[in-house]
């Protein structure tokens, strides 16, 4: 028996939709637990006052990455069957930048805006409306920009393949960067908190 179970036919399409909803409940639950239904909490990341976005995101990435790494090492997961988003380097670079602007202006990202809506945030509802508008604009512009969207294609490529090193080396590097990042983020938060206390005295 090997995972991913769906790809190996352990259950069918209908079952996969039920699991999708259950997985979604877990996803939404932990996003809200982290405070990500609140735009003020999310954007605090970019003012260095509360780095929860970085901390939550990177501890989630490290958890899932280590899980996949060890399960594959134990022969329980076939990594070649796990979806890796294909790389289109330049469009992803530009898209990420536009999305970052959207994040600080709008206060959410698509997933967190749904949690904001579920917990009554009207700014999240407005944000969702904006997302629909932006996707519609993209759809209408698509014929004109399709050549750019498909530019710099690099197919399914991972960091270790790109750098020509072992997966273990990259996994180790990501964990190291995350831990250093957690330490740095907490240091910055403490410094800013102290400065605000001093300013209010």
């Amino acid at each position: 028996m090997s995972a991913p179970f769906y790809k190996y036919g352990l259950f069918g399409d209908e079952m996969s939709l039920i699991l999708a909803a259950v997985i979604g409940i877990g996803f939404g639950f932990f996003l809200e637990r982290a405070g990500f239904g609140s735009s003020k909490k999310l954007v605090a990341q970019f003012y260095f006052t509360d780095m929860a976005v970085f901390k939550v995101m990177f501890s989630a990435i490290v958890t899932a990455m280590l899980g996949l790494f060890y399960l594959s090492w134990a022969g329980l997961v076939d990594l070649s069957m796990v979806f890796v988003p294909p790389t289109y380097w330049l469009p992803q670079l530009v898209g990420g930048l536009v999305l970052g602007f959207g994040f600080i202006i709008g206060g959410y990202c698509p997933g967190t805006s749904l949690v904001g809506v579920a917990t009554g945030r009207l700014d999240a509802l407005a944000f969702c409306g904006g997302v629909f508008g932006g996707i519609f604009a993209y759809g209408e512009a698509y014929p004109a920009i399709a050549s750019f969207v498909k530019s710099t294609p690099m197919d399914r490529i991972t960091l270790d393949e790109w750098l020509g090193v072992s997966m273990g080396a990259i996994v180790f590097a990501v964990v190291l960067v995350a831990v250093l990042g957690f330490w740095g983020a907490t240091t910055v938060e403490r410094k800013l908190a102290r400065r605000e206390v001093e300013a209010s005295v």
Binding site: V94, V98, L99, F132, G134, A137
Partner: peptide, 12 residues
């Protein structure tokens, strides 16, 4: 911001 996000996400 949501509109920028929607457009950027599709580009990426």
């Amino acid at each position: 911001g949501g509109a920028l996000m929607g457009f950027g996400a599709k580009l990426a």
